[in-house]
Design a protein around this nucleic acid. Sequence first.
DNA 1: CTGAAAGCGCTAACAA
DNA 2: TTGTTAGCGCTTTCAG
Lengths: 315, 315
Amino acid sequence: MSKVLNQRYGVSADTFARVTAVIKEMGYEASLVAQSLRNHRTNVIGILVADIEPFSTELLKGAADAIRGTGFELVVYSAGGRIGDPQGWEHRYLTRLSGTLVDGAVLVTPAVDLEGIPGTPVVAVDPHTGRAALPTIDSDNLHGGRLATEHLLALGHRRIALITGREDLKSAQQRETGYRGALASAGLPVDENLVRRGDYEADIAAESARRLLREPDRPTAVFAANDITAIAVIQAAQELGLRVPEDLAVVGFDNIPESALCTPPLTTVQQPIREMGHRAVELLVRLINGDEPTDTHITLSTELVVRQSTRPLTP
Amino acid sequence: MSKVLNQRYGVSADTFARVTAVIKEMGYEASLVAQSLRNHRTNVIGILVADIEPFSTELLKGAADAIRGTGFELVVYSAGGRIGDPQGWEHRYLTRLSGTLVDGAVLVTPAVDLEGIPGTPVVAVDPHTGRAALPTIDSDNLHGGRLATEHLLALGHRRIALITGREDLKSAQQRETGYRGALASAGLPVDENLVRRGDYEADIAAESARRLLREPDRPTAVFAANDITAIAVIQAAQELGLRVPEDLAVVGFDNIPESALCTPPLTTVQQPIREMGHRAVELLVRLINGDEPTDTHITLSTELVVRQSTRPLTP
DNA sequence: CTGAAAGCGCTAACAA
DNA sequence: TTGTTAGCGCTTTCAG
């Protein structure tokens, strides 16, 4: 009967038909768990995300696209933004699943740099440490940071603030480095008073923005470390009666769907999030199948998308 | 050693310490699969979604909230909007997982009405059939449809179009029934030419809207069967040079985050999506634990949220 | 071609 | 208190 299910040799046409009939009759489906335990191949790819939010959602869509036609199934594990177990839940999940429930995993939870699990291929998206031992998909955050800042400079802005991202993330650091580099290249000093915390949290960013914008010598432009932050900045500005982009230009980073829909639509550096998900799955499948690993550190390029939240500075 | 892990009686302090040390040393974690196979309790709740899109994402957030502190883990299975297997993938997944990998499941994939799996509690969100045999969470779509339509009537509109939702979904039908009912109550006939297909698909809805709005006797208001549809309508109107809400009022349904961010922000009927996710998990946990099932068909109420996409009709 | 049996990693029950 | 064993549902191997 197992032979029938798995299309193996050594079954007479008669038995085959009979067994098939009964299987249909009973609506039988093999237990995934028992299969997993026996075969070590499961044809399931796990994606571990820290939380369900716009970035991870976009990434999941890309991953879902990529998985189609590969014969793999997709299972998403969300830590649900939990706090109690900040370190190592990735590792714990991974070891519990590996070898059995999943053939490989994509880690979208960037806070931990783990050395891979022995038998289980893992691809990290935008990891903590930058180029780790693990295969990695990320995007060119350094260049993106420069692009955003240069755009504002080209529009005539000189007092350009930065709302930073999470300090523990390499990607956020690189965006800041790009910002500083662009100012330096333009021969401008960095006014440290214009660099404020954002942590990629809407609340924190909004608070920083409110304080910043209430100061007498406020900036004419803000580069926000991601779109969530940028949208918070726009809202804070509007609360204070400032118009965007007339009184304040805002540039974001990420290009989540919300950035095109907010008011006004956000000029942002496009990180190809869906493609990152796509590539991550693609790479992982290749690793699982034991194909030649070509390149295991893929950096996708970033691009500026100009929308209505910026325009030339009018003096 | 199993006893150590599971905190069972009959282990000396000495052995406990030694075993614990080795476990730490090796970074051991019990295999979820083997555990599942042995114990039939897994402490995992599965959520099956048809696709990763704004509605299911919102719902997942609510579910993730609810799961905290219950001792359950959350695993999401996405069909990835697949087409080849339109019927019954839910059933297939469910039978493959049930009794082993998950203790229960939430179905967010509304297209199929299945009778429950023997041993596995299942809660359906917004199901195909309305009040099925399965425990159900939904919202008051009928009332919501009335609310939306009555709002437009109160603003003075008389030519109110409807872009419908997916025909196979009870919820979409109810929104339409609410629309027709409100018009009838106001003593207005339904102009069938103003009722167009949307299928909850942005492309289809946009095309319907473009045709509708190009006709000589176009409506002054549109009730869109969900927010995705409504945003598509707004974009179509803007393409044609119509201003929203000056030339066309638009009301949506669902209240996904995008509806507050689109331009102009969308007046919409609020379906408490997050709460639906929350309630679904809550109910499921209760069923799994064998608690008294109180009420297994929960209908949450809907409310109108007025934003800038509607305002009184100016003749 | 069909039936029986071992074993995947784990835990509950039992024997020592 | 510790060590041993059966068996969860499946597939693969080997004997009939």
